[in-house]
Simulated scan of single mutants.
Amino acid sequence: MSKLSPETKKKIKSRTKLVYAGRNPAEQFGFINTPIYRGSTVLFDTVEELRDYKARFNYGTRGTPTTEALEIAWSELAGAATTTLVPSGLAAVALALMTAVKAGDHLLVTDSAYRPTRIFCDTILKRMGVEVEYYDPLLGGEIASLFKPNTSAILTEAPGSQSFEMQDIPAISAAAHARDICVILDNTWATPLFFSPHTHGVDLAIEAGTKYLSGHSDLLLGLVSASATWARRLRSTFDAFAMCAGPEDVYLALRGLRTMELRLKEAERQAFRLALWLQQRPEVREVLHPALPTCPGHDIWKRDFAGSSGLFSVILHPASDAAVAAMLDGLELFGLGYSWGGYESLLVPFDCSDYRTATTWNPGGPALRFQVGLEDLDDLQADLDAGFARLRATA
């Protein structure tokens, strides 16, 4: 952070940190933002400098001032020793797993994991000779009962990306570290603003920068941050793959970083109010939002998290596929589309039942995942009210 003393860096709050982290105007001729550096080749003045692989920059795949700015900023925000940037959230999952496991290892994966994560584990990792076992996300410290002599890593999500089970990350981390097992967390839902991964025992933290870091649904980016113990191994694995994020996407993410807390808190406020409204709807059986006292896992959320985001799920009372389609197809403000974390509201129906293996998904009705954006809440409720009328009329 430019001009900030070490003492000030320790004292400032996250909102201030987001403004200053990773910026050094003195290196940019006084301009506030680090510009986009595009390039592969770096020139050196001497053979000695050319052969110095410890140089700050020596080739495009090893990083540029643009990528370095975001890596430094994110490490400060997440309380990490280092951060690497990759082209997507799923690439971040892959990099973290490839850092932690090898052929012959046993990997534990939460049964609530992001489905593309499961596909990577069930195809690429199994092809490599990694034994993948799924576990009940509610196990907490009892996960130790699943450890084998060759267990090397645990992949967690808090909460689950669709079904919103809240995992006890500190308990899992304590059990894992007693056996030198790496703890990996997909922290995209909360971001480091609402859950500080490395202070809760996480070794490798995954973030889909596509979501709240971007905030505008116009880029793909993944980040993996590491504790001091895992920093060197993460960086060497990244260097071996050289799966580099594009400079324009990194620059846009740096722009998004400066306003991320404001957007995230507004999305939190909007989503919580909408969740309360949905709880009162006669068509709704259950709202899966960790900040609601009625949601399973609320106590863990309240203990460990500083907030919630704009993503949650709803279980409807039994209704036909045609009725749900009538409700969703006629929505005017809620878009039907994947991803989340942008300024626009989205809705997707989902069903976990066909790929759960350690647990059973049987919620008792159709499931919808809400991404709440920055529109006027009254307008969103009116759009949903009309949708529920279509649901009732078709049922």
Rank of each mutant, 00 (worst) to 15 (best):
L220P: 02
R232Y: 09
L391Y: 00
L374E: 04
R233I: 10
Y251E: 08
R15S: 13
Y37F: 03
D376S: 02
A94I: 12
G307D: 08
F370S: 02
R179A: 03
T16A: 13
N150P: 10
T294E: 15
V47N: 00
L4C: 15
L219A: 01
L276Y: 02
I181F: 10
C352G: 11
R56C: 11
A153L: 13
K13W: 15
K9T: 14
S145R: 10
H177E: 09
G364Q: 13
H200Q: 08
E344N: 06
T188M: 06
S320D: 11
Y338W: 11
C244A: 13
Y53L: 10
T237N: 03
I172R: 01
E165P: 08
L391Q: 13
P65D: 14
S14W: 02
L328G: 12
W74G: 03
A231F: 00
S309P: 06
G297S: 02
A306R: 08
A323S: 08
D329A: 00
L374T: 00
Y37M: 07
L146C: 01
A153N: 02
A81I: 04
N33I: 14
A231M: 15
A322C: 06
M260D: 12
Y114K: 15
S308M: 04
E165Y: 05
E375Q: 09
F305H: 09
L264A: 04
I154W: 01
A55K: 04
T117Y: 15
L43H: 01
D329L: 10
F29V: 03
S112Y: 08
I12D: 02
P366M: 05
R258L: 00
P192I: 10
L50P: 14
L384F: 05
F194V: 00
A358L: 03
C352W: 03
Y212D: 12
W230L: 05
I32M: 15
L18T: 09
K148D: 06
E283V: 06
S320V: 08
A367G: 10
R390H: 09
L368D: 05
E76C: 09
G330M: 10
G30N: 05
L77E: 06
L380E: 13
E261G: 13
L204W: 12
